[in-house]
Each structure stands twice: as structure tokens, then as C-alpha cells.
């Protein structure tokens, strides 16, 4: 049913995304799909990487580790944005098209009052993506 499952990852906050990562791997096993880990960063040195190349290396290593850990095939896709905090949703929606993902599994949070004014990234991706989206809330 699904061939490519895209999972956005923030390499600096992996612990908080445990549920989504495991769910994506479980779905990939069930459907024999490939998991594509998408990381969005900036060309400016950041906490995760001093250079874009370093970020790509780290994301590739992460995808390889996940493949070993869960026994699924994985890929990595590094996206770079001028302002990752505000462009994140658009980058993810574009990455889903670029990687031919037919399902996005992403971590989100429980709805709260602030979401009315400032929707979560998960809500915005679910609204705009052209494929199925599963939000794993914690």
C-alpha cells in the first residue's frame, strides 16, 4: 500500500521523536516500504553541523543506523532553508513530492489553545501535503 514513508527528523531532538520514528519503521516493515528521513537545516553553521556537508553526513549516518536498528531500508534527504523555523512546513511538503513519499509520519504535540493562532508543523503539513499524513502525538 505504501512504498515510501517520509519521516522528518530533528537530529538535535531525537528523544522527543522516538514514537514517530518507531511508528514509521513499523509501518515500513508492514508494507515493505523504504523510510526516507528528511532533515531541514540551514547553510549557516548550526548546533548540529558546521557545514551543509556535515549535516548531510550526519543525516546519512542516522539513516544507516536506523536501517540496522529496525531492519528496514532507509534513505536520507537533507533540505536547506534560509530560515528553517518558519520554512519548515513548506520544506517538508516539497520534500514529500521530491522523494515520492506516499505517507508522511511525523511527531507532533497534543492540541493546545495556542495552536488556534499558531498551528503546529504537523497540522500544516497535514493540511498541505498531497499524500497521507500520520501525526504521532505525545
Amino acid at each position: 500500500m505504501f512504498n515510501k514513508i517520509m519521516t522528518p527528523v530533528d537530529l538535535a531532538h531525537l528523544t522527543e521523536q522516538r514514537a514517530a520514528l518507531e511508528h514509521a519503521a513499523a509501518l515500513a516493515k508492514l508494507y515493505g516500504a523504504t523510510v526516507v528521513y528528511v532533515g531541514v537545516s540551514t547553510n549557516i553553521p548550526s548546533a548540529m553541523a558546521h557545514t551543509p556537508a556535515e549535516f548531510k553526513d550526519k543525516l546519512n549516518s542516522f539513516a544507516t543506523e536506523q536501517a540496522k536498528l529496525h531492519g528496514v531500508t532507509t534513505e536520507a534527504d537533507a533540505e536547506f532553508s534560509h530560515d528553517p523555523r518558519t520554512d519548515l512546513d513548506d520544506c517538508l511538503v516539497e520534500a514529500a513530492v521530491k522523494t515520492n513519499a506516499d505517507m508522511i509520519v511525523m511527531q507532533s504535540h497534543m492540541p493546545k489553545a495556542l495552536d488556534f493562532f499558531w498551528p503546529s508543523n504537523g497540522s500544516k503539513v497535514a493540511e498541505h501535503a498531497k499524500c497521507s499524513v500520520t501525526l504521532v502525538r505525545s
Binding site: R18, L21, A47, H50, E54, D57, S61, E65
Partner: peptide, 30 residues
């Protein structure tokens, strides 16, 4: 989960550049 990636040195930005080798991690004092 502690998916730390191995430190294999900092790759060049894009093509040749002269990176400064420092132990400081961006955001470590944040």
C-alpha cells in the same frame, strides 16, 4: 534514544574552504 553519529571531522562547506578547528559546539552555552 541516543543516536549519536560518529565524529569523523568536519567536512568542507561546499568545495574548498579553510575551516577553523575548534572544540566549541554551537549552542553549548544555550
Amino acid at each position: 534514544m541516543s543516536e549519536e553519529t560518529p565524529d569523523t571531522g568536519i567536512p568542507q562547506p561546499e568545495g574548498n574552504a579553510d575551516l577553523i578547528d575548534t572544540d566549541y559546539e554551537i549552542g553549548q552555552d544555550n
